[in-house]
């Protein structure tokens, strides 16, 4: 009996790790809005890359925010990869601290395209309003 167990463990142990990784990725995709391109779930080329998502902050240039600021780059990059309430809040807090504004409004948009008529537009994924007094 233990021989059979050892045999199964040797043959299927490592593949089981791969399945656990995939289950975890699907969990993050469905609960935290992780883009399928990442997380070990082999979902590349099944949806548009998160690189094409767009962060919109009224009155502020995102390019100038990330320029020479590794922390900002990482936080906003994380927001594009996994746009959810937590990542939006983290991004908003950092932008508020950096810009010293009273309040901030951040939106994350994704591209949408219709192959039947060629129309390209953007759809809102999520947004946050945060005041300095809320910090």
């Amino acid at each position: 009996m233990s021989n059979i167990k050892n045999e199964a463990l040797l043959k299927y142990g490592i593949p089981s790790l791969a399945i656990i990784t995939i289950v975890m990725q699907l969990f993050f995709v469905h609960t935290k809005n992780l883009n399928k391109w990442k997380g070990g779930g082999y979902g590349m080329y099944s949806e548009i890359h998160y690189y094409y998502n767009q962060i919109y902050i009224p009155g502020i240039s995102v390019d100038s925010l990330v320029k020479n600021d590794a922390d900002m780059k990482a936080t906003l990059g994380y927001l594009m990869l996994m746009p959810n309430e937590d990542s939006l809040k983290k991004a908003a807090e950092l932008v508020l601290q950096t810009t010293e504004k009273d309040s901030i409004h951040i939106q994350i948009w994704k591209p949408t395209v219709d192959s039947k008529n060629g129309v390209y537009s953007r759809a809102l994924i999520d947004e946050i309003y945060l005041k300095n007094s809320d910090l």
Partner: peptide, 22 residues
């Protein structure tokens, strides 16, 4: 097989919009 299921679960892929955009 996971790659297959990920594609099957993606409406954007299965209706051709993904390849069209790319």
């Amino acid at each position: 097989i996971t790659s297959v299921f990920q594609k099957l679960m993606s409406t954007q892929f299965m209706n051709g919009n993904f390849y069209y955009y790319m």
